[in-house]
């Protein structure tokens, strides 16, 4: 019973990690940029939600109306710079690591290194919970899961059904031939990076809704989110939701049955195994990736 409850709650929490991972996975897979600064954007998103809700009294969920466009511009600008400076895959990892550190320290300078949490009077969702049958779910994780499903399904549909989505997939597979069919990689790349950053704003909001946040929180996300990206298959947005649920469930079950301290152990062992044997995702045969 408690294990089942833990598993279900874990699955919902996995939804939030799926939102965090979606943008990272897409920019990695499609643009060949490993953007560690994505975690910085999520952090800023969380703090902006906190600030807007606390100081201005805006409903925390509605803060994304402001943060999403802002982050879109930041993400697009960053991609423009990466493209301009010719930062390729591996260098992008280092450059964005530097940027992440800058963001984390700046956040710390602005909001102090202490935990920040929205009070109950500005964040009505924190104390709510929903009972379904015998199970109880805190509202923030349910909201996060709903957002995860909406974002992942929307992204998946865009990738499948629109010209831009097809263009992105084509571009990820073969840049040269894609350009012969009129695909302008600069513009498309900026749009994708912008959308990815926008999703970081949403992820930040979702995190702030149910958790206290400190400037060093991104270090707690990195492992979980990379696990989701790699298990889901780099660049595969559908895989991200699946992997998020899987990783969330696994970690919650391990925490509930053994010890919370053990869950990173299981998780990171899973990452290492995945990197060793399925570096291109659980759903992708190793041979194809190796091409």
């Amino acid at each position: 019973m408690t294990t089942l409850q833990a598993a279900l709650s874990g699955a919902l929490v996995g939804g939030m990690f799926a939102v965090m991972a979606a943008g990272l996975s897409l920019t990695w897979g499609m643009l060949r940029v490993i953007n560690l600064a994505h975690f910085g954007l999520i952090l800023v998103g969380a703090y902006l939600t906190f600030e807007l809700a606390t100081s201005w009294g805006i409903d925390p969920i509605l803060t994304i109306v402001l943060t999403v466009p802002l982050m879109f511009l930041v993400g697009a600008g960053l991609q423009w710079a990466f493209d301009r400076l010719g930062v390729e895959e591996f260098a992008s990892l280092l450059v964005s690591f530097g940027l992440l550190i800058i963001v984390m320290q700046t956040v710390s300078n602005v909001w102090s290194a202490d935990f920040q949490r929205m009070d109950g009077d500005v964040n009505p969702y924190a104390t709510e919970s929903v009972s379904i049958g015998r199970f109880v779910f805190p509202a923030p994780t349910l909201i996060a899961f709903v957002f995860a499903v909406v974002i992942v399904v929307a992204a998946d549909q865009v990738l499948r059904r629109t010209f831009a989505g097809r263009a992105l997939r084509a571009f990820a597979e073969d840049r040269t031939v894609a350009s012969a069919f009129g695909i302008d990689h600069r513009r498309l790349g900026m749009v994708l990076a912008g959308l990815s950053a926008a999703s970081a704003a949403v992820a930040g909001m979702l995190f702030a809704l149910g958790n206290a946040v400190t400037p060093s929180t991104p270090f707690e996300w990195i492992g979980m989110v990379f696990a989701v990206v790699i298990l889901g298959g780099i660049g595969q947005v559908g895989g991200v939701l699946l992997a998020g649920v899987l990783v969330g469930t696994l970690s919650a079950v391990v925490s509930a049955t053994w010890s919370p301290a053990l869950s990173p152990l299981v998780l990171f062992s899973a990452i290492i195994l995945a990197l060793l044997f399925r570096p291109y995702g659980l759903l992708t045969p190793a041979a194809r990736g190796a091409r």
């Binding site: 097809r166 997939r169 031939v177």
Partner: peptide
Amino acid sequence: RRVFARMTVHDNLVLGAYR
């Protein structure tokens, strides 16, 4: 040939009409 292997036949054709 360099077709987009991970896309469907239909999507490959549609992509031809991207402009």
